[in-house]
């Protein structure tokens, strides 16, 4: 019980101080879980990062679940995750309250108006890096045409066409590209065997 409480508190701190999205949380988790409380080894922690990158969901939720499961079973998962989201819940709830109270005020509109182009740019930037990772398995500074993966390029173009033309839901597109792409890679091998 004492361990679980420690864990919960550790993740409250992770949730409270990880400003600026996913990767900002990694050093904090390492600091709390590996260095401070010694609840995981560094090797286990890097495994955790690998899993978190391969699976959906925010990295801090992934790690709180992973750590919680290993150390305290389902109860550990619930407690760690609760600790992790509690600070953001309280803070964002308060911010939401004020946003909806004042968002129609003219001055607030002008200021928010200046934030919007930047948000668009950052979504674009995140999109570009995931596109490069998908098509070249590389980042902006290390792409070369020889690394271009043709199947992924085909799926990207087809998905983009479908999503713009037919307004298909995002979930369907992502799952569809997973199925089609996996088949593209696996089928030739299966046919070759037969």
């Amino acid at each position: 019980m004492e361990l679980l409480l420690k864990l919960c508190l550790a993740f409250v701190q992770v949730g409270m101080f990880s400003v600026g999205g996913g990767y900002a949380a990694i050093p904090l988790i390492q600091d709390q879980i590996v260095n401070r409380y010694g609840l995981m080894t560094l090797a286990e922690f890097s495994d955790l990062i690998t899993v978190a990158e391969m699976t959906p969901g925010p990295i801090s939720i992934n790690s709180s679940t992973f750590v919680g499961m290993r150390l305290g079973g389902v109860g550990g998962v619930l407690l760690c995750t609760l600790g992790c989201i509690l600070p953001s819940f309280i803070i964002c709830y308060t911010l939401a309250h004020f946003y909806y109270k004042y968002r129609t005020v003219g001055g607030v509109q002008v200021v928010l108006g200046a934030l919007r182009p930047a948000v668009v740019a950052m979504i674009g930037s995140a999109g570009l890096s995931i596109l490069l990772l998908g098509l070249f398995q590389s980042d902006l500074f290390h792409i070369s045409l020889s690394n271009l993966r043709v199947v992924e390029l085909g799926i990207f173009l087809a998905s983009l066409y479908i999503v713009r033309k037919y307004k298909v839901s995002a979930v369907l597109i992502i799952l569809g590209s997973g199925v089609v792409g996996t088949l593209c890679y696996l089928l030739p091998g299966l046919v070759g065997l037969a």
């Binding site: 979504i123 999109g127 799952l175």
Partner: peptide, 28 residues
């Protein structure tokens, strides 16, 4: 198989984001 599925799904995710960004940037 999981590794391949995760890799190709990125192309789908990128397409969805591209769609959203085209709309948003157009509005800006």
């Amino acid at each position: 198989v999981i590794a391949i599925a995760l890799q190709v799904m990125r192309a789908g995710v990128a397409a969805v984001i591209a769609d959203v960004v085209i709309n948003l940037a157009g509005n800006v």
